[in-house]
Design a protein around this nucleic acid. Sequence first.
DNA 1: TTGAAGATTGACTTGTAATTCAAAAAAAGA
DNA 2: TCTTTTTTTGAATTACAAGTCAATCTTCAA
Lengths: 194, 194
Amino acid sequence: MSLREKKAAKKREDILRSASLVIARQGYQHATMEDIAAELLMTKGSLYYYFKNKQELLFYCHDLILSKAISKMEKIQREDISAEDKIKKAIKAHVAIAIEEKEIFNLIIEPEQIFSEEHIGRIIEKRDRYTGFFDQFIEEGIRNGEFNLKQKKMARMMIMGAVNWTQVWYSAAGEYDKKEIQTIYAEYLVKMLV
Amino acid sequence: MSLREKKAAKKREDILRSASLVIARQGYQHATMEDIAAELLMTKGSLYYYFKNKQELLFYCHDLILSKAISKMEKIQREDISAEDKIKKAIKAHVAIAIEEKEIFNLIIEPEQIFSEEHIGRIIEKRDRYTGFFDQFIEEGIRNGEFNLKQKKMARMMIMGAVNWTQVWYSAAGEYDKKEIQTIYAEYLVKMLV
DNA sequence: TTGAAGATTGACTTGTAATTCAAAAAAAGA
DNA sequence: TCTTTTTTTGAATTACAAGTCAATCTTCAA
């Protein structure tokens, strides 16, 4: 990769980072291309040099987070610990993402409202890959007798839902800190499974 | 109330009903005043005769659903059954609302994105009144020994989150029907509390 | 040093949807 | 019926933000 290409790649990353930031502050609908550009001391015209349009910019923001999330899960998957500990770690990791990436994470929740056909397929696929890890951990626990439940899928959805919800109410200044939430969520939600 | 006033009141209700419908179909951002008017065989100019603006129209849609939800809870509250049964009924009721009112319910989740100061206060207040019922049921269960947990508030949030999430994935054509979801959610989530 | 490729600009176009409003139509009451 | 009030209309206005593009500036390799 030439110097120029490296620079361009870095710029793309910078844009994604700033876009994430602005979206986190203002929400997707209210974050304008101008706002995102301003954050980088650029003009919006430039953004279009790097990304075809707002939707595509969004798509890559989204994709970045999902990729990070998936690699966390892969790491957990490889660890040599009980299924219970795996699902607990997974819950904690998911809490962290939901809290730290607030608004962008929201997009993962409701892609249909924002993305068009072309992106949706890829998003759903990747999202399924992510949630699949939770299914695996649950199944592992059932197989080796740690857990006991029939409705695996619904249990997973309850867990995801509970955790995704933190995104709505969590505030850094609030009553609970992240660590507390992680611990308690992991503990309580696992009680559903055993 | 004169005939005229009654008619106007009825029209306001009709508008709220149609608006709910259109929003349920298209989501808030994509439901235009024109769409809402078309549903009623009116023109959008008329809507402004009954509601100051789109936001206010929305506010009343929202308020209507929340009112219905609260009165369901009040009914459960008055019943002479165990705390466990109360929370189970509450969960089932909440599942029903989340599924049936999909998009409008969404507004309850994220009012900050849409409403301005003037409405937000009233919304939050009413929403708190609603979630307060869940707190009451949980506390009741703790008091009389049915439940055993320290983190009441977080438990409530996990329950609400899990249930709110159904709204995202539930589809009438999908794998599970409403009743199934209600039963399993109530059963599993209560396992967290005991 | 220089000129071609790459990057940036900002004014402009476009599209959408909310909101306004004067005029017309409908309804009610005298 | 006639007059006044209420309701509806649809065309015009307004606001906002996405996306375009010709012109300009920057960079870097020769």
